[in-house]
């Protein structure tokens, strides 16, 4: 049996419908739905091509590159400390070595960024994202939560940061 509230709601709904209707009056360009599947497939293909070419260079090599970079960076830091007072903080090295805007679109910088990102605590990355664009984080979490068994993957965070932030910003947190 319907409650009083439900009956009241139905009456209101009918009143609204009889007065205003339920027509869909949002115009759609002609042939839009006929073309949409192909447009989406095209978009997927272009994104895959991009990922593929991107994968081809640094990321597929990441397994051996990361240790190599670690050694290189460690050597660099070692050399740095050799010529600087011991009180110098690692953070300030980051700031000196990488100034804002001078690292993007450069393959060698990608290695450096990867190294730093992979060595930053996960919370740190999340904070970075939060500060930069909380709506993106929301959407990632939302999207992942609606994908069964989905959790926010560290790699996703790193990819996001790589594309949206300079290393200078990241090391400020």
């Amino acid at each position: 049996m319907k409650t009083k509230k439900e009956i009241d709601r139905e009456i209101s709904e009918k009143r609204l419908e009889s007065r205003f209707g339920k027509k869909n009056s949002f115009p759609v360009p002609e042939g839009y739905f006929a073309d949409l599947p192909q447009n989406i497939i095209q978009k997927i293909k272009s994104e895959q091509t991009f990922t593929l070419s991107f994968d081809h260079s640094p990321r597929t090599q990441r397994r051996w590159l990361i240790p190599a970079i670690t050694i290189a960076v460690a050597a660099f830091i070692g050399a740095f400390f050799l010529f600087k007072p011991l009180t110098t903080q690692v953070n300030s090295i980051d700031k000196q070595v990488v100034s804002k805007g001078d690292i993007q679109n450069d393959a060698s910088d990608y290695y450096y960024i990867s190294h730093i990102l992979y060595n930053l605590p996960y919370d740190h990355l999340l904070n970075a994202i939060n500060k930069e664009d909380d709506t993106y984080l929301d959407s990632v979490i939302y999207s992942r939560s609606l994908i069964p068994d989905g959790t926010l993957k560290e790699e996703e965070v790193i990819d996001y940061l790589y594309y949206h932030m300079s290393i200078y910003d990241i090391t400020q947190f």
Binding site: R19, F20, G21, K23, S25, F26, P27
Partner: peptide, 8 residues
């Protein structure tokens, strides 16, 4: 963007 009548 919208081509309904005034009521809509």
């Amino acid at each position: 963007h919208f081509n309904g009548d005034q009521l809509e």
